[in-house]
Design a protein around this nucleic acid. Structure first.
Lengths: 294, 294
DNA sequence: AAACATGATGCCTTCCGGGTATCACTTGAT
DNA sequence: ATCAAGTGATACCCGGAAGGCATCATGTTT
């Protein structure tokens, strides 16, 4: 195998087409340079230069090898900086999971912020429900999740990104739309209710159950995705509780009604990440966005 | 500047995570290998390995540098062959990238065709995903790619080689195999779905999302390689959409089911190449196979 | 024909890199 | 607690590779 010095020597000679000047450029004398080239030619197995005792010329093999040599040297020179940049988190890949619902609200601005703070970091996005995000964070398949409680505070660190209220999604023209006031629990007593899955969307499930004494007889579907729920509402299969940001979905045939009483903004979206941060880009992001904890 | 030996040493240690075994693999003793790594770290300007006096681990910089080192060595090993072949009067080398999936279908016949048309040209094959092929075509490390859209039509010219249908890969003995008819969207509603990565395998991702209203709650993995997907199916982690040619993989424990409805043959494989053709062998190939455009 | 230019070769010295022996430290067993 | 085993680092030695100087071989110029 040849050495980088041999490559550099060859490039110099190929550019100068003169051993003496090339040697001068390399801060060495001409004889060892000659021998360098000879060795290089031997290890490549082809003549690279034609020495005519008066002029030096590249052979075809030399021309081909010159490109390879330049590529090699360029790569070699960049490699340490690349590695250091990745290690410092200024470059690399961040794998971010997000729930469908967060896609309508916080995801866009957050990505803006990230690419402003870490312009050389590539973002790999995956839409996953909270449970899958947790799983992926544990196995290291994901660096950062945008998800909802609950999660294990021992293993994960987190930051509250966003809170919002729940609204009621009803089919267009539904009697409740003509109520002229906020919707109360009693108004929903006899409505077919499209419910969240207690397993896959436990957060919403608990939230709704806590908010409203659900008549289980009314539950017509259990689904795990906000988008599915709203689609089912549009198909007039029932009404559903969804976070306000779902209104941005722009699905036809659905109207969103305010809930009466002061229920606050119980829908939380958190950025969560494993406490043992493996990806330097994540560490950098947490510092840049001031997410790091004491 | 580091040396190739240092790179090879580092790669060996990074793979073995053990200086002694790595030294054995390199046919040398452990002490000089230790010093090699120390020098490499010094010239890179970052710690690459964490020696814990009991276990060796890659640092973040080490992980990043490992990739660079592998690329460098691969490039260095190929370079002489490239130059030699040109010098030996044979008219050159065609470096062709292909995706794993295309390896099962079009690659064999295409290679036949190429070696019939250009018997004096050597073929250098590399398996790369589409994104890597694009990158390699841009840097000139590749002459021709067998890849999938999208790519920049300004920079690349292309030719559609092959179209095929999608099928559903399911674990052997899965209930769907006893269906007795083509699979419909509804049949898959509750199946865990192994999805493509929207970034690394954007083409398939878009395709599947377009074909089928994916219930994102069901997505269990996002991967970028067809082979990985099929392996996961074999491991009964879920079902997956794959191009028909994946059936040729011959992986045990997987069955492939036809999709109902006329979905056409949406999976395209293109030959793509840079519009500014540098390699004369590529120019000849394009003319011979009548790929050249007006 | 002589002087010059240029790459190759011979020879010497230095230094780099590998080998052997050993150290320093940790871990696990008795 | 003590001791053996395992593992990477260090010390020292030696051979060979690489660079420098002097010179050769050959072709060009005057």
């Amino acid at each position: 195998m040849f050495t980088f010095d041999q490559l550099a020597g060859f490039i110099a000679v190929a550019e100068e087409l003169h051993f003496g000047r090339a040697a001068e450029r390399l801060n060495m004398t001409q004889p060892p340079l000659s021998r360098q080239i000879q060795k290089l030619e031997k290890s490549v197995g082809a003549e690279l230069l034609e020495r005519d005792n008066r002029r030096v010329q590249l052979t075809h093999a030399g021309q081909a090898f010159l490109e390879e040599a330049r590529r090699l040297l360029a790569l070699a020179e960049r490699a340490p900086a690349t590695a250091r940049r990745i290690a410092s988190g200024r470059s690399g890949v961040l794998r971010i999971g997000f729930t469908a619902a967060s896609g309508f609200s916080i995801l866009g601005p957050l990505l803006e912020e990230i690419s402003a703070a870490l312009p050389d970091v590539d973002i790999d996005l995956q839409e996953l429900v909270t449970g899958e995000q947790i799983q992926a964070l544990l196995t290291g398949e994901l660096d950062l999740g945008l998800a909802r409680p609950p999660f294990d505070g021992e293993i994960f660190d987190s930051r509250l990104l966003y809170r919002e209220a729940m609204v009621v999604a009803v089919p267009a023209g539904h009697p409740l739309t003509r109520l002229g006031r906020d919707v109360e629990n009693e108004d929903l007593r006899d409505e077919p209710l499209i419910m969240h899955s207690p397993l896959q969307a436990r957060y919403f499930y608990d939230l709704v159950v806590r908010t409203l004494p659900v008549q289980h007889g009314n539950v017509v579907h259990t689904v795990s995705q906000i988008l599915t729920m709203v689609s089912l509402v549009a198909a007039r299969r029932g009404v559903a509780f969804v976070p306000r940001s779902a209104t941005a979905l722009g699905i036809d045939g659905v109207e969103y009604l305010q809930l009466g009483g002061d229920r606050g903004e119980p829908v939380e979206l958190h950025a969560i990440w494993s406490r043992k941060v493996e990806n330097p880009a994540l560490g950098r992001l947490l510092r840049e966005l001031d997410f790091a904890r004491a």
